[in-house]
């Protein structure tokens, strides 16, 4: 019995340990600890008496406006009817249009980044961005062509990384100044960030593609375009769609706030209601945004389920 226990101990000691991982976790923990110690945080910011009064008033003003009036009904069913009617009126006046605009912005943006990301994924794939993709043996390409393709690959990957690293909100802020107040800056901001993400993910899919199909085509004399159309697109499309819809969820969520920069969509109405201290209206638009995001999640999950099963 003890022999077996010793064996278990030995195996436990001999388990694979990755030093980089343990060190990374330690470093992150250190960063978190130092941040709490060094940051300028005071508990009174949340629990001070002024904050409590403020929060209580804020919560009372979240109720729909008709219910805050002196003559409001005091039974729950009657209050609910008033609230539902107020909600319906708000939806008709502003809510429906704001939600539709927000949804439309996310759709155009994700479609643009789907196209751009799909195209840019080709020169960003290590197995495609070479002088003679999928051709084993054959004539050795000249050194110039090898370096040229390496440069194309590096530049594309770098571009995808940089557009992804900048937050959507900052892209939108910069683009608004250049393009003026239309919905384009919001669309392009979302599209840029998601192009970076989709491009990288799709490039990884292409790199993992089973090389037998493109090789067979290549052997039969197919050029780059034919390989893309006849092998890479059909092989990579399902996984691309999975990522596409996953990014769309994020896109919908993000597009609920970009309006805060001043373009009439959900985010705009939220900060507008806040500025007029109509907190009931603000809550209404927050709930609209929440519903839109949850609906997007549901649609996306359903489509991804279908794609996985197909």
């Amino acid at each position: 019995m003890s022999g077996r226990l010793a064996e278990v101990r030995r195996l436990h000691r001999a388990r694979p340990r990755r030093r980089f991982v343990t060190r990374s976790v330690a470093v992150l923990a250190l960063i978190i600890g130092l941040s709490w110690l060094g940051g300028d945080f005071q508990a009174t910011e949340l629990l001070g008496s002024r904050q409590q009064v403020n929060a209580a008033r804020f919560l009372s003003e979240l109720r729909p406006w008709p219910l805050q009036q002196p003559g409001a009904p005091d039974t729950l069913p009657a209050q609910l009817t008033v609230a539902v009617r107020w909600f319906g009126r708000m939806w008709q006046q502003k809510g429906a249009a704001a939600v539709a605009t927000t949804l439309a912005i996310s759709l155009v943006a994700i479609l643009l980044s789907g196209v751009a990301g799909g195209l840019l994924s080709l020169p960003a794939a290590r197995n495609f961005a070479v002088p003679q993709p999928f051709l084993p043996g054959g004539r050795r390409p000249s050194r110039v062509r090898i370096w040229l393709w390496r440069a194309v690959f590096g530049l594309t990957r770098g571009l995808l990384t940089v557009v992804r690293a900048v937050p959507e909100y900052i892209w939108a802020f910069l683009l608004l100044a250049v393009l003026g107040p239309t919905v384009w800056p919001l669309i392009l901001a979302l599209a840029l960030h998601n192009t970076g993400s989709l491009g990288k993910l799709t490039a990884d899919v292409i790199e993992n593609v089973d090389p037998r199909v493109p090789r067979a085509l290549r052997g039969a004399g197919a050029g780059r375009l034919a390989i893309v159309g006849a092998a890479l697109v059909p092989l990579c499309l399902p996984r691309f769609l999975l990522y596409f819809f996953y990014r769309w969820e994020i896109c919908v969520r993000e597009s609920t706030v970009l309006g805060m920069l001043g373009i009439a969509s959900l985010g705009f109405w939220i900060v507008d209601a806040r500025a007029r201290t109509h907190y009931d209206e603000m809550l209404f638009f927050v709930i609209c945004g929440m519903a839109l995001v949850l609906l997007g999640d549901l649609v996306s999950a359903a489509v991804r389920h279908v794609v996985r099963r197909a």
Binding site: F41, Q42, E45, T277, M282, V293, D297
Partner: peptide, 27 residues
Amino acid sequence: NLLRAVHELIWAVLLLAALGRGHLVAV
């Protein structure tokens, strides 16, 4: 899902309205 469905900037707007300025609000 409900926590996630509200964007962090919207949480920030809500919390700023309820509690006023403070670094913990952003956190």
